Amino acid sequence: MIGSNQVPYLLRAARGEKLDRPPVWMMRQAGRYMQVYRDLRDKYPSFRERSENVELAVEISLQPWRAFRPDGVIMFSDILTPLPGMGIPFEIIESKGPIIEPAIRTQEQVDNLRPLDPEESLPFIRQILQTLRHEVGNEAAVLGFVGAPWTLAAYAIEGKGSKDYATIKSMAFSEPSMLHQFLGHIADSIATYVRYQIDSGAQVVQMFDSWAGQLSPQDYRTFALPYQQRVVQQVKATHPDTPLILYISGSAGVLELMGESGVDIVSVDWTVDMADARRRLGYDIGVQGNIDPCVLFGSKPFIRERILDTIRKAGDRGHILNLGHGILPKTPEENAAYFFETAKQVDHLLATV
């Protein structure tokens, strides 16, 4: 149902307002830790069907909203979803993850890629986001998300998940011009995709450069940062008021460089203390995070103390409380519920400790 005319709480934080508590949501909050999701997955075993069928994707996106009332509702999708629209087919196998066949390895393949037309290849995304906006109104912000160029290129070139990223790094160091062409193509298509999500109802968009943390700072500055900036610059040229978030796993070594991307908010993982992240990034950039997902396996007093510690260090402006990575599949649902409950009572808790 459409709510009041108030601006969603998460959007206020993303725009830098001083608030009594930070808004809260979780990465991967719609997913395998919830029994209701596992039941639906058993009925519809294809991930792509679950994420590209409007009715199913909306239902999955709303499962944590109904259970926990987070301040952000993120659409259920995948960072690889736009690749077929560029001419890169993929499948997701439940036990193995994404498979891209044939992997992108030649100049001819790069030359044959096509620019993304979301209206043609991703019409379900518009319907999902429009429906989510209608369902949650202004009670929560609707988040879209995309993969960043380096990470999407890594999947496409490796052909699957990787532990050493040897194939894309070999291309980076031996055929850099081909890789730069590929990264540029992806960046322009992803910028188009972000704008499409915003026009469809996304109020905040998070960009995942999940694998960029595997780059040295020198190589990050060459192969990841310029293409993050290219996406952000194109989006901000047409949608300057929509907050953008950047997340990288294992980002401690490139945290300052993340701040150079042009995004409004840097999502911090747990390998960096929140107070240190604030110092390194500066207070002009918002922060998100950064609680270790394994904290949710601890006792309720332990969970509460970690929440309070993070919020104290982040301060009362420009902080979105989140995990430092996605919630883990075996997390007890009651602990997820307690995480949200505690976060929403934090102004009272801080006043009494």
Rank of each mutant, 00 (worst) to 15 (best):
K160W: 01
W150T: 00
A103W: 02
K300L: 15
G262V: 04
A141S: 14
F76S: 10
Q228D: 11
V272T: 15
R12Y: 08
R28N: 04
R312Y: 07
Q214I: 00
G318F: 03
R66Y: 14
D276T: 15
G253E: 08
E333N: 06
V295F: 00
L323A: 10
V142F: 08
A166Q: 14
P98W: 02
G259Q: 07
V73P: 09
V136N: 12
D20F: 00
R21L: 10
I198K: 05
K313S: 14
V24F: 06
R133Y: 03
Q218A: 13
P149D: 06
E260W: 01
T342E: 13
L122Q: 13
G72W: 03
K18L: 12
Q107I: 09
K300T: 12
Y338F: 15
F90K: 04
Q109W: 05
P293M: 12
K96Q: 15
I79K: 02
Q29P: 07
I74F: 02
A191Q: 05
M86P: 11
P243K: 02
V353F: 09
F182A: 02
W25T: 08
Q229T: 11
N112I: 06
R230Q: 14
R280C: 03
T242M: 09
R66T: 09
D117Y: 08
S261P: 12
A275Q: 11
N138T: 15
A148G: 13
G289P: 08
L321H: 10
R221M: 05
N335T: 08
I245Q: 03
R12H: 09
A166G: 12
A153F: 00
H134N: 14
Q228K: 00
Q130S: 15
R28H: 06
V7H: 00
M27T: 05
V254T: 09
Y155G: 09
A202M: 09
L80V: 08
D71W: 05
V54N: 08
L132E: 06
F173C: 05
V110G: 07
S121L: 03
K300F: 13
P70H: 00
A30Q: 07
I303L: 12
R66G: 11
D209R: 01
D269P: 12
E120N: 12
S4H: 10
H134S: 15
